[in-house]
Design a protein around this nucleic acid. Sequence first.
DNA 1: GCCAACGTTGGC
DNA 2: GCCAACGTTGGC
Length: 156
Amino acid sequence: MQNWLFKTEPDAFSIDDLANMSNQTEHWDGIRNYQARNFLRDNVKLGDQVFIYHSSCKDVGIVGLAQVVKEAYPDHTQFDPESKYYDPKSSPDNPRWVMVDIQFKQKFSKLLPLKVIKSMPEITEIGLVKKGHRLSIMPVQQSEFEYLLSRCKEAS
DNA sequence: GCCAACGTTGGC
DNA sequence: GCCAACGTTGGC
């Protein structure tokens, strides 16, 4: 069992969009980084908890919680020439990119800002607080996950 | 919109 | 396999 943090740009797809999907479930497509792909393919498991994080926007931080409801399967956008995620070097026989499905669990009434996360002495391992870490899928160790979750709920 | 820090590509 | 050039990410 693992915990994760997935980044998303709320202008493209936000926590509210996830909450409004049918079954409050959506496939997490468009991951085009090998390290993130390897996490998705090898380590993201059914039932894992996922922090949803808004990036590249006015209010950057953790906004909610989701869970994995389907493990890795081929990301269909890699085969679609119309998609911005199209990868001509990938083929259906040998898909290069995968995605998982996640289901909305909770939106925190107040977001936990990146600035605050960085100021927490308890939080030292998560990729967010490390310099130059740009992964859009990152593991969160259990102790830090629990601490962050309690702070999110406390702010709510 | 800037720019630092990465990741990827491709010539050699 | 090196590395320069280029592209992308993402906080500010």
